[in-house]
Amino acid sequence: MKYIKEIALYIGLPLIFIAMMAFRNANHQTMIENIQKDSHDKGFAVVELFTSEGCWSCPPADELIAKLQQGNNNKQLYIMAFHVDYWDHQGWKDRFSQADFTERQKQYASWLRLNNIYTPQLIVNGRTEMVGSEEGAVLGSISAALRETSAQPLSLNAEQAGRELKITYSGAVPNKKAHILVALVQKNASSQVSAGENAGKQLTHVQIVRRLQQQEAKEQGVITLSLPEDFQKNGWEVIAFVQHKNTGAITQAAKLEW
């Protein structure tokens, strides 16, 4: 009888684990669906993922923001993936990586009083950071941001002139201690990685930041972005947001899709 109980316990533990995982996944899926709902009268969430094609632990974080972006109807959810360049020495150069994005992540380390930078790191509204692949923490932080009071609306307009994009904005709260930043975002791309920690993998990406420009936050103004050679009107968007220079807190945001 003793051995029968031990066998039952041995078999039961994996079943309990499977049941717990299924419950967790179902809960996370419900959270994703709630985040994706249109919510004009609630807060906003600016989600910044620092990632790299050369980092073996980054694909799960890329997959998580892809889940959030797919079927998203929430106009106040702003997702950006910044590909950093400090993994490029590992044998594979990420074609989306930029040194400026590494510097942005270092600035966050200063703002948030962190001892180092890492990937995948995810930051919400410039205030909260976490490992980008930890679904519970990521979804909880985004949900909390969306429950906050709405900010003053920010309006955008874009006009292409040759290889430049002129972004006109209005509605920003004037603040000498804040910047307005404008990001040109490619919504989807993929890479076949042939070296480094992800050698042999086909990686898919969403919301890739290709250009980022900033200036002092005035009530209205114009920011010009140079366009990448592969730019097309379809499959790209502009995200603008106001960020405090001293704390990194993001107080307003808007996006414009073609």
Results as ranks from 00 to 15, higher is better:
191 S>W: 00
191 S>N: 06
192 Q>W: 09
192 Q>I: 04
192 Q>A: 13
197 E>F: 09
198 N>I: 02
198 N>H: 00
198 N>S: 03
200 G>Q: 11
201 K>L: 12
201 K>W: 07
201 K>V: 09
201 K>T: 04
201 K>C: 06
202 Q>H: 15
203 L>T: 12
206 V>D: 03
206 V>W: 01
207 Q>M: 14
207 Q>H: 06
209 V>H: 07
210 R>T: 08
210 R>S: 02
210 R>F: 05
211 R>K: 15
212 L>M: 13
212 L>Y: 09
212 L>I: 15
214 Q>F: 12
215 Q>H: 05
215 Q>E: 07
215 Q>N: 10
215 Q>G: 01
215 Q>P: 00
215 Q>S: 07
217 A>C: 13
219 E>Q: 11
219 E>H: 13
219 E>C: 01
220 Q>Y: 10
221 G>H: 10
223 I>T: 03
224 T>G: 06
226 S>I: 10
228 P>I: 06
228 P>C: 12
229 E>F: 06
229 E>S: 11
230 D>R: 05
230 D>W: 11
231 F>D: 04
232 Q>G: 08
233 K>N: 09
233 K>F: 15
234 N>H: 04
234 N>D: 12
236 W>E: 04
236 W>F: 13
237 E>W: 07
242 V>W: 08
243 Q>F: 03
244 H>N: 15
244 H>T: 01
245 K>N: 10
246 N>E: 15
248 G>D: 01
